[in-house]
Write a protein that binds this DNA or RNA. Structure first.
Lengths: 158, 158
DNA sequence: ATAATACTTTACATTTTTGTAAGGTATTTG
DNA sequence: CAAATACCTTACAAAAATGTAAAGTATTAT
């Protein structure tokens, strides 16, 4: 019940691009360096996000990646599910069958039911947080109360 | 961001015992059969839960497993974390460092921050559901409106 | 006592996930 | 047009999770 490596590193790479805005652009090697991961790994994660429509790739000498939409318009649910698949595997019941052909709890599965409810809760939370929220939060963490008091600063979650 | 196999099958085995109550008892082979998994696998999962104090093992010829507390007194957070570890890995930041010695976002990690919030939400949800809730829900699924109308039956979650 | 039953432990095989490597394709600059 | 740069794709290696096997220990019934 944890965030996978793909999901986390993918999100982190996307955040690097989000900080540049939709007009900005960065090469894979710069992104990899920014996150402390290898270039091939960053490359792989960005390829997934490109195919998912989250980022655009520009090839050639002045190439690089850029984020496709405003960070305030991209929520975490979209990012996480595009990197790691849906929160509740669509053929969950076909996979968790143990040694049997079919799961023993076909018409009677409170576990599956509760997983659905849980997935809904998680989805709601993730959908309510955008990349921009994360970036804003970062700023507050780096610069705790610069200048005047910032107690009125936007709170990400309660 | 999904429930692991260990967590799910472990929970399912525990539910089998929960249905018997604290006085009941079942052998590993019966539990394995009830869930459609192999005996050695069920054995392994039950051993984890025994060490975690969720079940008691009785050895010898009339041996078996029994649940240690009332199903209404065991919530899913406890079960899931004892099977799969804490929702947010305590040394998360020490592991997701990419190729670096230390994570690049040490003092500045909005991702970690949001993971903490998310883990809290998930924990709250899981803590609010007991094994008994799941069993009750099952009954309603097997016997939809037996006898008179049951629209006033207990709802597990909204 | 002894055999049968059932939990216990350790080791290992398999599968999935994670991360790396290498060769290919496209674009820009001189 | 050629060389440099940067993305793209496929295949593969390493690590972790999943599931199996086998030999050991404890208890009960005969």
């Amino acid at each position: 019940m944890r965030m996978s490596a793909t999901e986390e590193y993918g999100l982190r790479c996307l955040l690097v691009l989000a900080r540049q805005g939709t007009e900005g652009q960065m090469s894979v090697s710069d992104i990899a360096e920014a996150e402390g991961i290898s270039v091939p790994y960053a490359s792989k994660l960005l390829a997934i996000m490109r195919q998912a429509g989250l980022v655009t790739a520009v090839r050639g000498r002045k190439g690089g990646f850029r984020i496709r939409r405003e960070p305030s318009e991209i929520n975490l649910l979209e990012v996480i599910t595009k990197l790691g698949g849906p929160l509740l595997d669509p053929d969950h019941c076909a996979k968790r069958t143990g040694q049997l052909e079919q799961c023993i709890h076909t018409d009677n599965c409170s576990v599956h039911d509760i997983l659905g409810s849980l997935a809904g809760k998680i989805a709601g939370f993730l959908a309510g947080t955008t990349l921009n929220d994360l970036i804003e939060k970062e700023r507050l963490m780096v610069l705790p109360r610069v200048g005047s008091d910032q107690s009125d600063a936007k709170q990400i979650q309660g």
